[in-house]
Design a binder for these strands. Structure first.
Lengths: 231, 231
DNA sequence: TATTGTCTTATTGCATACAATTCATATATT
DNA sequence: AATATATGAATTGTATGCAATAAGACAATA
């Protein structure tokens, strides 16, 4: 299991890093060769990632990086918004100096990245900031759940942070969240985090829906039977 | 994977049904013999259940049904409370006649079981009632997450539903929740569900802490080195 | 030209075998 | 007597092989 655990992390990291994009096939033989092991530990790693929702393992049909429908994706962002706002509410209620320091430091790092317009760096620091909020809830289990979902959504978050002024807007929202938490205003912290996350989801949903529309239009030329078989 | 999926369900069901209690060992060979398969699909099922949090698969040390610490357990109930209240809020906002009917029917079934003092039946109907609320959120992903956590906590919920007057109290709380959702009062629905779930968690926590205290006292006689090695 | 059916090929699912590690028991030592 | 060590048994981790299924290619027919 030691090997399988390493592999699970490695594959998960590759997905989060964007090396495998949603829809990409993850066939056991290639991965086995790439990591220099047999198919067995690869299979075990893939099955675990499947249980965590990162990938889709369809019986006898192999594993692919999950491709949620636009609806599902919106549901995931909405759920993320609810969980994050719960974290924010608890953080406002229970804030400790250590957690305050961690969040503030992450926020400053985000500011530097945003001012530099470095979206890759902001992407990384953004995750640290959000994780600091999760931890500040003083509920380790909730924090784990939040982080797991955050990771699952990372592929979609990354894309929409590319727009430069989105970085600065995101940063301002972070500042508002931080202010509310430090003021101990549970309700405000919850609302601001909820909106911050859901705004991302909505923006992304629009984008995906646009993309889906274009794909649909393009696919309209192809056979109806083919498209029916795909689903 | 077909076989492994069956086995995963079967083992999960056995855990939820209480056949395997928290702490019980799940060794691959016995399970393989029991289900008439080789160890491979058993391992695959166990690893998946591990990812879902039902069991603990410690490298090279086998799998056991998870035994959360009292702190962790409280965190899990608190998280459940937050997720359920989110479901309740959304349900109040989006209630459809179909979902209303499903919740009401489940509530009536709970009432019958509670009046009869049948805690096993109540346990089953209670799950249907809560699942109906999850579905009523009109967010399939959130509902899936809620149900997964609900299942994980089932072993602990079952125990504390044994007390007869707890059944009637639980039923009354259900009535209040249902009333708030049907009235479209998001805030009230969220609060009532939060309290309903957290009350369970607190009651259970007290029980577990009492239990842990007794165990700790009993264990005090044993060697300190042994207890150090266990962790 | 489009569609359907068959065949080939590639990939997954499971079983078995072996290697590596942990756990338990027994023995030796202080 | 208690602790430490060593040995053996049991269990897990990985590799390999074979069987079963699905994807793709190709040909035949409408």
């Amino acid at each position: 299991m030691s090997q399988a655990f390493r592999l699970k992390q490695a594959i998960e990291d590759a997905v989060i890093a964007g090396e495998f994009l949603p829809g990409d096939r993850l066939d056991e033989a290639s991965l086995a060769e790439r990591f220099g092991v047999s198919r067995t530990p690869i299979r075990e790693a893939l099955l675990q990632l499947g249980s965590e929702g990162f990938i889709d393992v369809r019986p006898r049909r192999g594993a692919i990086v999950s491709v949620p429908t636009p609806t599902r994706l919106f549901e995931m962002f909405e759920t993320m918004a609810e969980i994050e706002s719960a974290c924010g509410r608890l953080a406002a209620r229970r804030l400790t100096p250590e957690n305050d320091a961690a969040m503030s430091a992450a926020h400053r790092a985000c500011a530097v990245a945003a001012q530099a317009g470095d979206s890759e760096q902001y992407y990384a620091d953004n995750r640290i900031f959000h994780e600091a909020i999760y931890r500040a809830s003083c509920n380790g289990f909730l924090a784990d759940q939040a982080l797991a979902l955050h990771k699952r959504l990372s592929a979609y978050r990354r894309i929409q942070l590319r727009a430069r002024n989105r970085l600065l807007q995101s940063l301002q929202e972070h500042a508002g969240v931080l202010e509310a938490i430090r003021a101990g205003d549970e309700q405000l912290a919850a609302t601001r985090l909820h909106d911050h996350v859901l705004a991302q989801g909505e923006r992304f949903s629009d984008m995906v829906l646009g993309l889906a529309e274009r794909q649909r239009t393009a696919a309209a030329g192809r056979a109806a039977a083919k498209s029916r078989a795909a689903e």
